[in-house]
Design a protein around this nucleic acid. Sequence first.
DNA 1: GTCTATAGCTGGATAGAC
DNA 2: GTCTATCCAGCTATAGAC
Lengths: 213, 213
Amino acid sequence: MSKVSPSTDWREARRASAREAIVDAAWELASEVGLAGMTLRELARRAGVTTPTLYAYFDSKDAIYDAMFGRAATDFADLMAEPLDARDTSAALVSYARRFVEFCTSDVARYQLLFQRTVPDFEPSPESYAPAVRALDATREHLARNGITEARHVDVWTALLNGLVDQQVSNDPGGDRWTRLIEEAVTMFLSHCRPASGARTARSGSPTKGHQR
Amino acid sequence: MSKVSPSTDWREARRASAREAIVDAAWELASEVGLAGMTLRELARRAGVTTPTLYAYFDSKDAIYDAMFGRAATDFADLMAEPLDARDTSAALVSYARRFVEFCTSDVARYQLLFQRTVPDFEPSPESYAPAVRALDATREHLARNGITEARHVDVWTALLNGLVDQQVSNDPGGDRWTRLIEEAVTMFLSHCRPASGARTARSGSPTKGHQR
DNA sequence: GTCTATAGCTGGATAGAC
DNA sequence: GTCTATCCAGCTATAGAC
Protein backbone atom coordinates (compact mmCIF):
# COMPACT_ATOMS: atom_id res chain seq x y z
CA MET A 1 0.00 0.00 0.00
CA SER A 2 2.53 2.52 1.18
CA LYS A 3 6.26 2.87 1.10
CA VAL A 4 6.59 3.21 4.87
CA SER A 5 7.90 0.22 6.75
CA PRO A 6 5.57 -1.98 8.81
CA SER A 7 7.08 -0.79 12.04
CA THR A 8 6.26 2.76 11.08
CA ASP A 9 2.68 1.70 10.48
CA TRP A 10 2.55 0.15 13.90
CA ARG A 11 3.86 3.26 15.52
CA GLU A 12 1.46 5.43 13.61
CA ALA A 13 -1.40 3.19 14.66
CA ARG A 14 -0.34 3.21 18.28
CA ARG A 15 0.02 6.95 18.22
CA ALA A 16 -3.41 7.39 16.65
CA SER A 17 -4.85 5.03 19.24
CA ALA A 18 -3.32 7.05 22.06
CA ARG A 19 -4.74 10.22 20.57
CA GLU A 20 -8.17 8.63 20.39
CA ALA A 21 -7.92 7.63 24.04
CA ILE A 22 -7.20 11.23 24.97
CA VAL A 23 -10.14 12.45 22.92
CA ASP A 24 -12.32 9.86 24.64
CA ALA A 25 -11.30 11.16 28.04
CA ALA A 26 -11.77 14.73 26.85
CA TRP A 27 -15.38 14.14 25.84
CA GLU A 28 -16.11 12.32 29.04
CA LEU A 29 -14.71 15.20 31.02
CA ALA A 30 -16.39 17.90 28.95
CA SER A 31 -19.79 16.29 29.35
CA GLU A 32 -19.34 16.54 33.10
CA VAL A 33 -17.83 19.98 33.60
CA GLY A 34 -18.66 21.72 30.36
CA LEU A 35 -16.37 22.70 27.54
CA ALA A 36 -15.07 25.81 29.24
CA GLY A 37 -14.51 23.97 32.52
CA MET A 38 -12.24 21.40 30.94
CA THR A 39 -8.65 21.79 32.11
CA LEU A 40 -5.59 20.02 30.82
CA ARG A 41 -4.58 18.90 34.29
CA GLU A 42 -7.84 17.08 34.85
CA LEU A 43 -7.86 15.73 31.32
CA ALA A 44 -4.39 14.30 31.81
CA ARG A 45 -5.43 12.75 35.10
CA ARG A 46 -8.44 11.09 33.48
CA ALA A 47 -6.35 9.84 30.61
CA GLY A 48 -3.83 8.35 33.03
CA VAL A 49 -0.93 10.52 31.95
CA THR A 50 0.54 13.87 32.92
CA THR A 51 0.14 17.26 31.36
CA PRO A 52 3.32 17.31 29.28
CA THR A 53 2.36 14.01 27.72
CA LEU A 54 -0.70 15.65 26.23
CA TYR A 55 1.64 17.96 24.39
CA ALA A 56 3.35 14.97 22.84
CA TYR A 57 0.09 14.32 21.01
CA PHE A 58 -1.44 17.75 20.59
CA ASP A 59 0.12 21.13 19.97
CA SER A 60 -2.25 23.06 22.16
CA LYS A 61 -5.57 22.97 23.93
CA ASP A 62 -7.27 24.27 20.82
CA ALA A 63 -5.84 21.32 18.91
CA ILE A 64 -7.60 19.07 21.42
CA TYR A 65 -10.84 20.96 20.88
CA ASP A 66 -10.33 20.47 17.18
CA ALA A 67 -9.88 16.72 17.58
CA MET A 68 -12.98 16.66 19.75
CA PHE A 69 -14.88 18.52 17.06
CA GLY A 70 -13.71 16.06 14.44
CA ARG A 71 -14.82 13.11 16.51
CA ALA A 72 -18.22 14.65 17.19
CA ALA A 73 -18.74 15.61 13.57
CA THR A 74 -17.86 12.10 12.42
CA ASP A 75 -20.20 10.52 14.95
CA PHE A 76 -22.91 12.90 13.84
CA ALA A 77 -22.45 12.20 10.16
CA ASP A 78 -22.33 8.44 10.75
CA LEU A 79 -25.50 8.48 12.81
CA MET A 80 -27.34 10.57 10.28
CA ALA A 81 -26.27 8.28 7.47
CA GLU A 82 -27.74 5.17 9.10
CA PRO A 83 -30.73 3.82 7.19
CA LEU A 84 -34.21 4.50 8.48
CA ASP A 85 -36.92 1.92 8.89
CA ALA A 86 -40.10 3.82 8.21
CA ARG A 87 -43.08 3.02 6.04
CA ASP A 88 -43.25 6.36 4.27
CA THR A 89 -41.12 9.43 3.72
CA SER A 90 -42.86 11.65 6.26
CA ALA A 91 -42.54 9.04 9.00
CA ALA A 92 -38.90 8.74 8.03
CA LEU A 93 -38.53 12.47 8.51
CA VAL A 94 -39.97 12.23 12.00
CA SER A 95 -37.52 9.48 12.86
CA TYR A 96 -34.75 11.51 11.38
CA ALA A 97 -35.71 14.52 13.49
CA ARG A 98 -35.85 12.38 16.62
CA ARG A 99 -32.42 11.06 15.85
CA PHE A 100 -31.03 14.54 15.53
CA VAL A 101 -32.66 15.87 18.68
CA GLU A 102 -31.65 12.81 20.67
CA PHE A 103 -28.08 13.20 19.48
CA CYS A 104 -27.99 16.83 20.58
CA THR A 105 -29.76 16.58 23.90
CA SER A 106 -27.91 13.48 25.04
CA ASP A 107 -24.68 15.45 25.28
CA VAL A 108 -25.05 19.18 25.69
CA ALA A 109 -21.34 19.91 25.54
CA ARG A 110 -21.11 18.10 22.23
CA TYR A 111 -24.09 20.06 20.93
CA GLN A 112 -22.49 23.32 21.99
CA LEU A 113 -19.17 22.59 20.34
CA LEU A 114 -20.72 21.30 17.13
CA PHE A 115 -23.59 23.69 16.59
CA GLN A 116 -23.03 26.74 18.71
CA ARG A 117 -19.96 28.89 19.05
CA THR A 118 -19.37 28.66 22.75
CA VAL A 119 -15.61 28.17 22.98
CA PRO A 120 -14.00 31.58 22.56
CA ASP A 121 -11.51 31.98 19.72
CA PHE A 122 -11.90 28.39 18.60
CA GLU A 123 -12.76 27.50 15.05
CA PRO A 124 -12.61 23.97 13.68
CA SER A 125 -10.10 23.13 11.00
CA PRO A 126 -11.45 22.28 7.54
CA GLU A 127 -10.57 18.62 8.06
CA SER A 128 -12.57 18.41 11.27
CA TYR A 129 -15.44 20.34 9.77
CA ALA A 130 -15.80 18.25 6.64
CA PRO A 131 -18.00 15.49 8.17
CA ALA A 132 -20.45 18.12 9.39
CA VAL A 133 -20.95 19.26 5.82
CA ARG A 134 -21.55 15.67 4.81
CA ALA A 135 -24.26 15.39 7.46
CA LEU A 136 -25.96 18.55 6.27
CA ASP A 137 -26.03 17.11 2.77
CA ALA A 138 -27.77 14.03 4.17
CA THR A 139 -30.35 16.32 5.73
CA ARG A 140 -30.98 17.99 2.40
CA GLU A 141 -31.41 14.60 0.79
CA HIS A 142 -33.98 13.48 3.33
CA LEU A 143 -35.92 16.68 2.87
CA ALA A 144 -35.77 16.32 -0.89
CA ARG A 145 -37.41 12.93 -0.59
CA ASN A 146 -40.31 14.80 0.95
CA GLY A 147 -40.39 17.27 -1.85
CA ILE A 148 -38.62 19.97 0.13
CA THR A 149 -36.03 21.44 -2.19
CA GLU A 150 -36.09 25.18 -1.64
CA ALA A 151 -33.13 26.49 0.34
CA ARG A 152 -35.34 28.67 2.53
CA HIS A 153 -37.35 25.64 3.58
CA VAL A 154 -34.21 23.78 4.50
CA ASP A 155 -33.27 26.73 6.67
CA VAL A 156 -36.68 26.69 8.34
CA TRP A 157 -36.14 23.01 9.05
CA THR A 158 -32.77 23.51 10.73
CA ALA A 159 -34.13 26.45 12.70
CA LEU A 160 -37.10 24.42 13.90
CA LEU A 161 -35.04 21.45 15.06
CA ASN A 162 -32.32 23.58 16.61
CA GLY A 163 -34.97 25.59 18.39
CA LEU A 164 -36.47 22.49 19.94
CA VAL A 165 -33.05 21.35 21.08
CA ASP A 166 -32.05 24.75 22.39
CA GLN A 167 -35.22 25.24 24.40
CA GLN A 168 -34.95 21.71 25.73
CA VAL A 169 -31.41 22.00 27.02
CA SER A 170 -31.79 25.59 28.21
CA ASN A 171 -35.13 25.44 29.96
CA ASP A 172 -35.88 21.83 30.77
CA PRO A 173 -32.62 19.91 30.98
CA GLY A 174 -33.20 16.22 31.40
CA GLY A 175 -36.90 16.54 30.67
CA ASP A 176 -38.97 16.14 27.51
CA ARG A 177 -41.03 19.32 27.39
CA TRP A 178 -39.79 20.17 23.91
CA THR A 179 -38.55 16.84 22.61
CA ARG A 180 -42.08 15.48 22.83
CA LEU A 181 -43.16 18.14 20.34
CA ILE A 182 -41.03 16.74 17.55
CA GLU A 183 -43.77 14.92 15.70
CA GLU A 184 -46.09 17.90 15.86
CA ALA A 185 -43.34 20.21 14.66
CA VAL A 186 -42.52 17.97 11.70
CA THR A 187 -46.20 17.74 10.79
CA MET A 188 -46.47 21.52 10.93
CA PHE A 189 -43.36 21.88 8.80
CA LEU A 190 -44.46 19.39 6.17
CA SER A 191 -47.99 20.70 5.78
CA HIS A 192 -46.56 24.14 5.11
CA CYS A 193 -43.48 23.40 3.03
CA ARG A 194 -44.32 20.25 1.15
CA PRO A 195 -45.79 20.98 -2.26
CA ALA A 196 -49.45 19.97 -2.45
CA SER A 197 -49.47 16.68 -4.33
CA GLY A 198 -52.71 15.00 -3.30
CA ALA A 199 -54.73 14.43 -0.17
CA ARG A 200 -52.61 11.86 1.71
CA THR A 201 -49.58 14.13 2.02
CA ALA A 202 -51.29 16.48 4.45
CA ARG A 203 -50.81 14.59 7.69
CA SER A 204 -49.12 11.46 8.89
CA GLY A 205 -51.42 10.80 11.83
CA SER A 206 -49.40 9.20 14.61
CA PRO A 207 -48.09 5.98 13.10
CA THR A 208 -44.76 6.22 14.89
CA LYS A 209 -46.27 6.70 18.34
CA GLY A 210 -44.12 5.06 20.97
CA HIS A 211 -41.32 4.54 18.54
CA GLN A 212 -38.83 6.68 20.43
CA ARG A 213 -36.18 5.39 22.88
CA MET B 1 -42.91 58.40 52.67
CA SER B 2 -40.17 56.72 54.58
CA LYS B 3 -38.44 57.21 57.86
CA VAL B 4 -35.04 57.65 56.31
CA SER B 5 -33.62 61.15 56.12
CA PRO B 6 -33.34 62.99 52.78
CA SER B 7 -29.58 62.73 52.83
CA THR B 8 -29.89 58.97 53.05
CA ASP B 9 -32.16 59.05 50.01
CA TRP B 10 -29.57 61.04 48.13
CA ARG B 11 -26.86 58.62 49.00
CA GLU B 12 -28.98 55.67 48.02
CA ALA B 13 -29.73 57.33 44.69
CA ARG B 14 -26.10 58.11 44.00
CA ARG B 15 -25.13 54.59 44.92
CA ALA B 16 -27.77 53.13 42.63
CA SER B 17 -26.61 55.47 39.87
CA ALA B 18 -23.03 54.32 40.28
CA ARG B 19 -24.16 50.71 40.12
CA GLU B 20 -26.03 51.41 36.91
CA ALA B 21 -22.94 52.99 35.39
CA ILE B 22 -20.97 49.85 36.14
CA VAL B 23 -23.67 47.68 34.59
CA ASP B 24 -23.62 49.93 31.53
CA ALA B 25 -19.90 49.44 31.15
CA ALA B 26 -20.28 45.72 31.77
CA TRP B 27 -22.74 45.29 28.91
CA GLU B 28 -20.65 47.36 26.59
CA LEU B 29 -17.63 45.23 27.41
CA ALA B 30 -19.50 41.93 27.20
CA SER B 31 -20.87 42.76 23.77
CA GLU B 32 -17.30 43.19 22.58
CA VAL B 33 -15.45 40.32 24.19
CA GLY B 34 -18.25 37.96 25.11
CA LEU B 35 -19.61 37.11 28.51
CA ALA B 36 -16.83 34.69 29.36
CA GLY B 37 -14.15 37.11 28.19
CA MET B 38 -15.24 39.84 30.55
CA THR B 39 -12.67 40.46 33.28
CA LEU B 40 -13.06 42.65 36.31
CA ARG B 41 -9.84 44.52 35.56
CA GLU B 42 -11.03 45.59 32.14
CA LEU B 43 -14.52 46.34 33.44
CA ALA B 44 -13.07 48.58 36.13
CA ARG B 45 -10.93 50.37 33.56
CA ARG B 46 -13.95 51.00 31.34
CA ALA B 47 -15.98 52.26 34.26
CA GLY B 48 -13.17 54.63 35.24
CA VAL B 49 -12.48 53.03 38.61
CA THR B 50 -10.23 50.32 40.00
CA THR B 51 -10.97 46.72 40.78
CA PRO B 52 -11.54 47.08 44.53
CA THR B 53 -14.10 49.79 43.87
CA LEU B 54 -16.22 47.28 42.03
CA TYR B 55 -16.39 45.31 45.25
CA ALA B 56 -17.82 48.36 46.99
CA TYR B 57 -20.89 47.94 44.79
CA PHE B 58 -21.02 44.22 44.09
CA ASP B 59 -20.13 41.25 46.24
CA SER B 60 -18.66 39.20 43.43
CA LYS B 61 -18.43 38.79 39.70
CA ASP B 62 -21.57 36.68 39.75
CA ALA B 63 -23.39 39.56 41.43
CA ILE B 64 -22.42 41.69 38.45
CA TYR B 65 -23.72 39.03 36.08
CA ASP B 66 -26.92 39.06 38.08
CA ALA B 67 -27.30 42.83 37.76
CA MET B 68 -26.62 42.50 34.04
CA PHE B 69 -29.30 39.85 33.81
CA GLY B 70 -31.76 42.08 35.64
CA ARG B 71 -31.08 44.97 33.32
CA ALA B 72 -31.45 42.80 30.21
CA ALA B 73 -34.63 41.18 31.48
CA THR B 74 -36.17 44.58 32.23
CA ASP B 75 -35.24 45.92 28.80
CA PHE B 76 -36.71 42.81 27.26
CA ALA B 77 -39.97 43.01 29.16
CA ASP B 78 -40.33 46.73 28.42
CA LEU B 79 -39.74 46.23 24.72
CA MET B 80 -42.19 43.38 24.53
CA ALA B 81 -44.84 45.39 26.37
CA GLU B 82 -44.77 48.24 23.86
CA PRO B 83 -47.95 48.48 21.83
CA LEU B 84 -48.04 47.16 18.30
CA ASP B 85 -49.42 49.00 15.32
CA ALA B 86 -50.80 46.31 13.08
CA ARG B 87 -54.09 45.97 11.27
CA ASP B 88 -54.87 42.44 12.43
CA THR B 89 -53.78 39.97 15.02
CA SER B 90 -51.66 37.81 12.74
CA ALA B 91 -49.76 40.80 11.40
CA ALA B 92 -49.25 41.86 14.99
CA LEU B 93 -47.74 38.47 15.70
CA VAL B 94 -45.29 38.90 12.85
CA SER B 95 -44.25 42.29 14.20
CA TYR B 96 -43.95 40.79 17.63
CA ALA B 97 -41.73 38.03 16.32
CA ARG B 98 -39.54 40.52 14.47
CA ARG B 99 -39.18 42.53 17.64
CA PHE B 100 -38.04 39.47 19.56
CA VAL B 101 -35.57 38.31 16.95
CA GLU B 102 -34.18 41.80 16.49
CA PHE B 103 -33.71 42.13 20.23
CA CYS B 104 -31.82 38.85 20.39
CA THR B 105 -29.63 39.19 17.32
CA SER B 106 -28.65 42.80 18.00
CA ASP B 107 -26.66 41.73 21.07
CA VAL B 108 -25.55 38.14 21.12
CA ALA B 109 -24.02 38.31 24.57
CA ARG B 110 -27.30 39.57 25.97
CA TYR B 111 -29.15 36.78 24.18
CA GLN B 112 -26.79 34.20 25.61
CA LEU B 113 -27.11 35.44 29.17
CA LEU B 114 -30.88 35.79 29.02
CA PHE B 115 -31.94 32.74 27.08
CA GLN B 116 -29.11 30.27 27.09
CA ARG B 117 -27.07 29.01 30.00
CA THR B 118 -23.63 29.92 28.86
CA VAL B 119 -22.05 31.33 32.01
CA PRO B 120 -20.97 28.37 34.13
CA ASP B 121 -22.42 28.12 37.62
CA PHE B 122 -24.42 31.31 37.23
CA GLU B 123 -28.13 31.44 37.92
CA PRO B 124 -30.11 34.64 38.12
CA SER B 125 -31.68 35.65 41.43
CA PRO B 126 -35.48 35.60 41.60
CA GLU B 127 -35.57 39.41 41.59
CA SER B 128 -33.56 39.61 38.39
CA TYR B 129 -35.55 36.84 36.80
CA ALA B 130 -38.99 38.30 37.52
CA PRO B 131 -39.16 40.61 34.48
CA ALA B 132 -38.42 37.69 32.19
CA VAL B 133 -41.49 35.92 33.51
CA ARG B 134 -43.50 39.07 32.85
CA ALA B 135 -42.31 39.08 29.25
CA LEU B 136 -43.26 35.44 28.76
CA ASP B 137 -46.74 36.28 30.01
CA ALA B 138 -46.94 39.01 27.37
CA THR B 139 -46.01 36.42 24.76
CA ARG B 140 -48.80 34.13 25.93
CA GLU B 141 -51.22 37.02 25.72
CA HIS B 142 -50.28 37.84 22.15
CA LEU B 143 -50.64 34.23 21.15
CA ALA B 144 -54.01 34.00 22.90
CA ARG B 145 -55.26 36.89 20.75
CA ASN B 146 -54.54 34.61 17.80
CA GLY B 147 -56.43 31.77 19.37
CA ILE B 148 -53.30 29.96 20.49
CA THR B 149 -53.96 28.84 24.02
CA GLU B 150 -52.56 25.33 24.32
CA ALA B 151 -49.32 25.16 26.28
CA ARG B 152 -47.71 22.86 23.72
CA HIS B 153 -48.33 25.41 21.00
CA VAL B 154 -46.74 28.13 23.06
CA ASP B 155 -43.72 25.87 23.41
CA VAL B 156 -43.61 25.32 19.66
CA TRP B 157 -43.68 29.09 19.23
CA THR B 158 -40.75 29.74 21.55
CA ALA B 159 -38.79 26.90 19.94
CA LEU B 160 -39.42 28.27 16.47
CA LEU B 161 -38.32 31.82 17.31
CA ASN B 162 -35.34 30.71 19.36
CA GLY B 163 -34.34 28.41 16.55
CA LEU B 164 -34.32 31.25 14.05
CA VAL B 165 -32.24 33.36 16.40
CA ASP B 166 -29.86 30.58 17.22
CA GLN B 167 -29.19 29.64 13.63
CA GLN B 168 -28.79 33.28 12.71
CA VAL B 169 -26.19 34.10 15.32
CA SER B 170 -24.37 30.77 15.04
CA ASN B 171 -24.19 30.34 11.28
CA ASP B 172 -24.69 33.74 9.68
CA PRO B 173 -23.69 36.43 12.18
CA GLY B 174 -24.50 39.88 10.91
CA GLY B 175 -26.53 38.53 8.00
CA ASP B 176 -30.22 37.87 7.52
CA ARG B 177 -30.34 34.31 6.24
CA TRP B 178 -32.71 33.25 9.00
CA THR B 179 -34.20 36.53 10.16
CA ARG B 180 -35.76 37.00 6.72
CA LEU B 181 -37.70 33.78 7.27
CA ILE B 182 -39.68 35.21 10.18
CA GLU B 183 -42.86 35.96 8.28
CA GLU B 184 -42.90 32.57 6.63
CA ALA B 185 -42.28 30.85 9.96
CA VAL B 186 -45.12 32.72 11.62
CA THR B 187 -47.45 31.88 8.76
CA MET B 188 -46.49 28.24 9.05
CA PHE B 189 -47.05 28.32 12.79
CA LEU B 190 -50.44 30.01 12.58
CA SER B 191 -51.83 27.83 9.84
CA HIS B 192 -51.00 24.79 11.93
CA CYS B 193 -51.79 25.92 15.46
CA ARG B 194 -54.60 28.41 15.05
CA PRO B 195 -58.00 26.78 15.41
CA ALA B 196 -59.91 26.81 12.14
CA SER B 197 -62.42 29.62 12.44
CA GLY B 198 -63.28 30.60 8.88
CA ALA B 199 -61.44 31.19 5.64
CA ARG B 200 -59.54 34.42 6.25
CA THR B 201 -57.60 33.12 9.25
CA ALA B 202 -55.58 30.71 7.16
CA ARG B 203 -52.98 33.02 5.73
CA SER B 204 -51.91 36.61 6.10
CA GLY B 205 -50.42 37.05 2.63
CA SER B 206 -47.67 39.60 2.90
CA PRO B 207 -49.35 42.73 4.24
CA THR B 208 -46.41 43.65 6.41
CA LYS B 209 -43.81 43.44 3.64
CA GLY B 210 -41.12 46.06 4.11
CA HIS B 211 -42.34 46.81 7.57
CA GLN B 212 -39.14 45.84 9.36
CA ARG B 213 -36.43 48.26 10.51
C1' DG C 1 7.35 9.38 25.29
C1' DT C 2 6.92 10.03 29.89
C1' DC C 3 8.03 11.94 33.89
C1' DT C 4 9.14 15.98 37.83
C1' DA C 5 9.37 20.55 38.39
C1' DT C 6 8.33 25.03 37.28
C1' DA C 7 7.96 29.09 34.45
C1' DG C 8 4.89 32.77 33.15
C1' DC C 9 0.69 34.63 33.20
C1' DT C 10 -4.01 36.04 34.38
C1' DG C 11 -7.89 35.65 36.96
C1' DG C 12 -10.96 37.01 41.23
C1' DA C 13 -10.71 38.87 45.53
C1' DT C 14 -8.59 41.42 49.76
C1' DA C 15 -5.61 44.41 53.16
C1' DG C 16 -4.95 48.62 54.66
C1' DA C 17 -3.70 53.60 53.95
C1' DC C 18 -6.14 57.80 52.89
C1' DG D 1 -15.47 54.94 48.69
C1' DT D 2 -11.37 54.96 46.42
C1' DC D 3 -6.91 54.05 45.91
C1' DT D 4 -1.99 51.15 45.78
C1' DA D 5 -0.23 46.98 46.45
C1' DT D 6 -0.67 42.31 46.77
C1' DC D 7 -2.31 37.62 47.70
C1' DC D 8 -3.44 33.24 46.09
C1' DA D 9 -5.35 30.05 43.06
C1' DG D 10 -5.70 28.27 38.68
C1' DC D 11 -4.45 27.94 34.00
C1' DT D 12 -1.48 26.71 29.61
C1' DA D 13 2.76 25.55 28.26
C1' DT D 14 7.79 24.30 28.58
C1' DA D 15 12.62 22.72 30.30
C1' DG D 16 15.23 18.99 31.08
C1' DA D 17 16.27 14.40 33.26
C1' DC D 18 15.39 9.57 32.26
